[in-house]
Every structure is written in C-alpha cells, then in structure tokens.
Amino acid sequence: MKRVKKHLKLWITLAVIVVLCIPLIALNPSEKKLRAEIPQDFYKEEVKKSSDVYKDWKIFSTLIVTQQISSNQANRFYVVGIAGNTFGVYMDETTSLSVGGNVVKFVANCTSWIPNLLKGAEITVLLTICSVTVGVLLSIFLALGKMSKIKIIQAFSSGYIFLFRGTPLLMQLFFIYYGLPLINPALSINDRFTAAWIAFSLNTAAYCAEIIRAGIQSIDKGQFEAAKALGFSYAKTMRKIIIPQTYRRLIPPIANEFIMVLKDASLTSIIALQDLSKVTQSIMTSTNDVWIYLPSMAIYLIITGVFTKIFTVLEKKFSIYE
C-alpha cells in the first residue's frame, strides 16, 4: 500500500515537472532573439535607456512581474521577467510579440485554457463512469449468457460479443448517432452525450463480458459443488458465492478497461461532443498553439492517476480474506 502511494506521488510529480520544464527549455528565447524581435528603433530609444523608463510595475499573473516600457498608449510594450532575466515581450497582456511564445505566455494561456479543458474533462470522466457502470452490469448477464446451457441465450451472447468486439467503436458511434435516424427518425438520439453513452456502454459490455466470464471460470469447481451440496440454486450460487469471489480478480482488468474507455472517449469528437480531446483540438485550431497539448495531457494523467488509486484501494478492500 505504502509503496503504491509513493509511486503515485512520483508519477504526479513527474507529470508536473514535465509540464513545467518543457516550455522552460523549449520556449525560453535567448536575449539575442528577443532583441531581434523588438523593433530596432524602439529598442534603441526605449529599452536601451536606463531604468527610469520602466514606469508602471505591476503584477501580471501571480508569478511574474511585467515591466511596462512604452508610455505611449497606442504602442504599449511589456517586458516580462524575473530578476533581470527577460522572458518575453508583449504588445498587450496576452498577445506575444516574440514568435514561439515563452513560459509566461504558456502560464498565462494555461489560466485561460484550463477552465475550458476542465469542462471537457468533466464530460470525459462522466461518460467513462456512466459507460463502464452500465457496461459492467450488462456484461454480467452476457457472461452468464455465454456460459448458459440454453442454446439461444448462449448464441445471443456469443453473437453480441462477436459483433461489438469485432467492429470499431468509432463506427458503432457513427451508426448510433448518424445512422439510426436515417433508418427511422424515431430512433434518433438528439443528445450527443446519450448517444455516446449508449455506444460506449454497448461496446464496453462486450469486453467486460469476457473479463467476467474468465473471472467466473477461474473459480475453483469445488465451490460450485459445495454450493450444490448445500442446496443453493444456480442464481444464488452465483450471487452469494461465485461472483463475490471474482471481485478481486476482476478489478485489475476492469480498471484497464476503464482507462481504455477514458481515452477512447476522445472518439466522441466525431459527433461533436465537447470532451477533453475535442476541447483541446478546438483550442489548437483557433490559437494554433501546440502547447495546449501539455495541460491537456497532464489532465488525462491526473485523471488516470486518481482512478488507478481508487481501483488499487478497491482491490485491497476485496482481498481482505486472502
């Protein structure tokens, strides 16, 4: 337990360090480059002078001090830096003059991106939780169905799993959202989230069914015999004896499936659901700033980290008897 905790902290720290360091190294322009980017005449006249030019000092974001250079309202520049290190020059507070941006710009951009990203993350997480929950519930019946002695039920379950595991999720999503209304308008699902939810639940059910079937079949045959000898019906044997024993074994593969779904949720962008990936992509197209991927990926990492932790705790809880 303690070791897992340590590892989790390590991962989160690593993620944060990566997020902070990459722009520092990659984006911090050299002073030479900066000078080249500031209009020459301006540089000569304003910057090269002494500190008495730097008038209104103000706190810009929480980290960095900007130095307002020009007093001319129409042509205002900001030089940004800490302790004599210049990080960037701005036309106004958000528009960068220097190509390639810099740390400050990145931090500033993040503060404006993150609320939108979090809204997307909320949809991603909600979709994943809802889909995996419904999927797992469905999959119990599918798994039992596949092991059933009744031919029709067995065939239905096998067929279902074959179909939904054998075709791309993207296509299933397409079919449910765009295809069904064309077949019959009554089948149209107007809410994008609901459509995605249905598609993901149906898909993940097929995968989880095989996980659960394997879990049930891994239980010692003696358990079924003991239950039978004590007079348990099939349903009660499953509910009270077999399935509770599978919990611990199921958690690792289900956690795996959960994380897969979390990332597959990015497929919903084809039906224009504003999930984390879609939001990231929209910001990318509108700002043309590749660094949007950093906070976005960091959010993904944090979400997966948190859920990995939750599943580890659950696994621990269900293995008390071992």
Partner: peptide, 29 residues
C-alpha cells in the same frame, strides 16, 4: 437437503468468515 456432504478439499467459501460459512446455507436456502 437431508444429505450433508464433506469434501476432500474442504471447499469452504474463502470470501466468508467461519461463522458466515456456516450460516450462509441455512439463511439463503
């Protein structure tokens, strides 16, 4: 139900305590 059975490999229910193992069938069945 008039026949009780004891197995070579015990086949106790591992997820239940001793007390729960013994109680389960009378309650459920």
């Amino acid at each position: 139900l008039d026949m009780g059975m004891v197995f070579q490999r015990f086949n106790l229910f591992p997820h239940l305590t001793v007390l729960e193992n013994v109680m389960l069938a009378p309650v459920e069945v």
